[in-house]
Amino acid sequence: MGQTALARKAGISASLLSKIEVGDRALSQGVAASIAAALGCTLNELLGKASTEPANKEKLTELRGVIRRFDCPGDPPSGSEKIQAGLSDLFKLRGEANLGGVLNHLPNLLESATNYAHSVGTPDAWSSVADVYSGVYWLAARHRWMDLADLAVVRQRMAAERANPLTVAIASRDEAGTFLNGGDFATGLAVVDRAVTEAEGRLSGKARAFGLGILHLRGLTLAGRIMDKRVAARHQQEALRWADEIPQDVGDHGIHFGPENTATHVMATYVDMERYADAISTMEGIEREPITLPATRVGPLHMNAARAHLALGNREKALDSLSEAWEIAPQMARVHPHSQETLRVLTSLHRRSNRRLMALAKRAGIPH
């Protein structure tokens, strides 16, 4: 397929496709999804899986084995204390964007939590299982191991249905995330809409604000990827409304929600929708107060700031923001497509040597 034919089939200009190919423009997730559809593949297939360190392959094989044994439990632990401690450690590692640590931690915790839930059968026990599977989805999505992500959300939903409505809402959020990662944004939005309707009928109190809030944030991201201003505005308005019910960001089930995290999602969506000046303005507002969010949220925040600065032609500020992302969440920056794309374009556009840029490109494994 020639360049002109591919551009036409993807619904983009040949000029834009050419600039992306030679490194003059960054490939956005929305454009990438259109190109993937034109080529008959998924977004994650187009972007490619992140490489697995040799030391992690054994743990990944072990994790897959535990997932397969979901309905074949072994001997349960004597109590839930170690499981709860293990969940706390998992949430901490996830918050730090410590991908290697999460992978090392998951197999034993998942096996213990699953065996215990089969033994006692309580909603709290099954909620713990769903939380671990949410961690599996998070790890798999970061690396674009989408076969593992898809399997994780199926198991997560099975556990959540035996737990409580908030855990079901979180499972739906992660399910919509698999469509986000695969580039099927419209289906992801349908999953969110279905989950919102279900949550409105089942959740109450603080759980209602938290559950509906995280669902609308997922909807906001999905709508931004397809440039649907009306749907994005609706999800943004609803997310802000529920964030008002939570004065300060809170973490629950390994996920954060509140005014600060809502602002980071709004900023990211502005970048997706090419509202770069609005994104920078929102970023400046976020930075007026000390950021309390964990690295797993702050790292992508700076990646999105780098994308906005690059689109506005400010390469130095783009490099500053990208360097911040690498400083805060290096393991995530190494595999995240936003980080990789921004750095690819920066190295392509810099015609003269830039020691800081070259050092970052070397860390990322990008030729320069």
Rank of each mutant, 00 (worst) to 15 (best):
D24W: 05
H368V: 10
R68F: 08
A268Q: 11
G365S: 03
V136H: 02
A333D: 07
M227S: 12
A279H: 12
V191E: 08
L109T: 14
P77Y: 02
D75K: 10
N104T: 14
R94Y: 06
K57R: 14
P123V: 12
T269W: 03
E21D: 14
M283G: 12
D249N: 04
V120G: 02
L360A: 15
T269G: 09
L346Y: 03
V168A: 05
A97P: 03
S323L: 04
G219K: 05
L6P: 14
R356K: 10
D71M: 07
I35W: 11
D252V: 13
G2H: 02
R352Y: 07
H105K: 01
A305R: 12
T42N: 02
L139W: 05
V266Y: 00
C41K: 15
S80E: 10
F210Y: 03
R25D: 09
G285E: 02
G79H: 07
N181T: 11
V66I: 14
V22T: 14
Q156K: 00
D89E: 13
E284Y: 03
H336G: 08
V168S: 06
L99Q: 15
C41T: 13
S112L: 05
N181F: 09
L215F: 00
G213D: 07
E53S: 11
I83W: 01
Q248M: 14
L212V: 08
A176L: 01
S127H: 14
R334Q: 03
V345M: 00
A125H: 01
R208Y: 06
T178N: 03
R69V: 08
T187G: 07
R275F: 01
I255V: 15
